[in-house]
Amino acid sequence: MEDEVRAGEAIDAPRLALERLSKRFGDRLALDGLSLTLPPGEIYGLIGPNGSGKTTTVKLTTGLYQPTDGRVVVDGVDLQREPERAKRLLGYVPDEPFAYDRMSGREFLHLVGALWDVPARERARRIDELAATFAGLAETLDGHVESYSRGNRQKVAIVAALLHRPRLLVIDEPIVGLDPESALRARELLREFAAAGGAALVCTHTLSFAEAVCHRVGLLRDGRLVAEGDLPSLRRRATREGSPGEASLEGLYLHFAGRR
């Protein structure tokens, strides 16, 4: 990936550092002191049951929520202190990829590119280049977004997130609605992005996807990180705790989520 975005203070700064991050909604503590670090090149999978705090983590990381405590540092830039600078380094794919219905997909992508100050010519080139990743997307881009299927909206959101060459990708459910071929392409895109020095925080219930692309996985339960590591280390820990040695990520999930 080209290195267009100016990074934070430290050259070797992690792409993302969450430091004792907490979020309270009224009396409910949705996230309780979460800390994690993503170095360049890493794809980190955050898994956990519904209501465990995954989406809250994503929204805190992208600046859509304000933390009750702790901080989010993107490539050395504190998100709360310098939100505009930090967001410039971020690409985000939400769990519900709604776009502006009365625009075409192409207009929407141009708008997103303009918000991140991508020059018009560069935008046009990147849109064509990224849209070509997904079969049939380029032909769909000139219709109104409101007529798009869930899968096409997801593809547009992925293209939008990559348009400005971010340092960090934050993805809430990467392949929901995608057909198998597009899901494969999304997986390749993510790997290419990480290989070029980016880092990705991926929240998902699709454990096969996480197993296939994530270098490390963290399991959230009740707003707390209850397990973290690569697959072999998680298996070793699960074995020590009495779980079968060759468990899949699904088995590990059930084990650490306390479901068996």
Binding site: Y100, S104, A114, W116, D117, L141, D142, G143
Partner: peptide
């Protein structure tokens, strides 16, 4: 008579991020 709005760039009149958002409001 179709739903297509054409392969257009955006924004067409205004410039910069703020201009793009204002033009989007007008377009919507």
């Amino acid at each position: 008579a179709t739903a297509a709005v054409g392969a257009r760039e955006f924004p067409r009149r205004l410039r910069g991020p703020i201009g793009a958002l204002v033009e989007r409001d007008v377009l919507a």
